[in-house]
Amino acid sequence: MTDDTRSDISLRVNDATYQLAVDNRRTLLDALRDDLSLTGTKKGCDHGQCGACTVLLDGDRVVSCLTLAVVADGADVTTIEGLAGGGELRPIQEAFIRLDGFQCGFCTPGQICSAVGMLAEHAAGWPSAVTRDDSPERTPELSEEEVRERMSGNLCRCGAYPSIVRAILETSVREAVSK
């Protein structure tokens, strides 16, 4: 109706900057998908209850369905399309393929973005609900149980959970070795 229901925003997505005029109601998820044609990010529930729309916002994993596009104005967004720079798969992506960490593939972009964010959280020493020794002096070991808890915001109805956990753990070990 009036102009103040729309906003001009700037989004930096996967290292490219986009200027957009958006309906304030538009979510970051819909802006990525419909305005920027970055359809790798999926809409599984649109209410923050499944994790399929997970992206990295200024490096943190968030659900893009509950993030308004206008709120992300000026932010740096990484989507599944931005993970494989220059066409080269990241180890986590490669591990998902090799270990069959998906079936229908619909939750996969969210699982992978979530895993990338989660590994960074873990590297920063963040505890989880299953961290037994939660004293701040220690970084919890990334066990299967830790990965499962930290990834629980990403539902997978095909039941690829065990191979997703394996792919994440294998990647984290490899990255730790390569450091």
Binding site: R61, G117, D134, S135, N154
Partner: peptide, 21 residues
């Protein structure tokens, strides 16, 4: 975490990593 562990634990028991961020 040191002074109010139940507070840290309660937050971590809620929602998901994405939503807590």
């Amino acid at each position: 975490r040191r002074r109010y562990p139940a507070l840290s634990q309660a937050i971590l028991a809620g929602a998901s990593g994405q939503l807590r961020n």
